[in-house]
Amino acid sequence: MAYLLETKGITKRFGGLTAVDRVDMGVEAGEVVALLGDNGAGKSTLVKMISGVYKPDEGDIFLDGKKIEITSPIDALAHGIETIYQDLALAENLNVFSNIFLGREKTKKALGIFNVLDHGYMEEESQKVLDRVDIKIPSLKANIRNLSGGQRQAVAISRSIYWDAKVLIMDEPTAALGIAEQRKVLDMVKSLKKHGIAIIIISHQMYDVFEVADRVIVMRRGIKAGERLVKDTSSEEVVGLIVGAEEVGKK
């Protein structure tokens, strides 16, 4: 099957350091790819090139087989590549529906002249999309500050899928959550997968990876150290790839 999103020979250097070195990777529609690696292995840099935060020094990004230029986060969003960062990037002082519509607010005409915010519409639409990920939030008028970690994650995910994400990148989605909420988030990921969204997850939690991912890609010191189908591998092998034990073994 063809990849929905693919990188070819993508490279990013910071001064003398090559953070990501000619990496080829791809993700299919309805597939979850887990991106693993130790701290500083280049996972975040790789993902940030796809989401438009960094501009690659070399290499290309393809969406649906067509080469695309991503020079800013806005470009990535326009291509349907949504990213949920570890800090979720929500404005804590705003309410749920304002966050889901942040930057893309729906307005209506008041008195035929002024464009004013259409709160009613935004609240209704937000409720619909939250229902899709099956998350209960007592009031969509509540500020993000007053929500739990799982609810915030749900808001961030809802925002992405509301805007027709084709590719969803999630950075450590379960890192700051309690056990019950981790389950909830993993369930959300599974349901997004059923909707045909291509998902890239960065995670440290081996359990998460084996629970939801179809394929793992392991990064080590900027290069792709290995790629395995989850059904054909074990956590021992993946850990081995992360720390480089396999290479040592070969010698």
């Binding site: 986060p73 800090d87 929500l90 804590e92 304002s98 942040l102 893309r104 607010e105 307005t107 915010l117």
Partner: peptide, 21 residues
């Protein structure tokens, strides 16, 4: 207005506002 909402958003989280486009 949108302008006002963005004003609050920037004060709440500059990062979130940038990433929201």
């Amino acid at each position: 207005t949108k302008f006002g909402r963005h004003t609050y958003a920037i004060g709440g989280s500059m990062d979130a506002s940038v990433r929201a486009g």
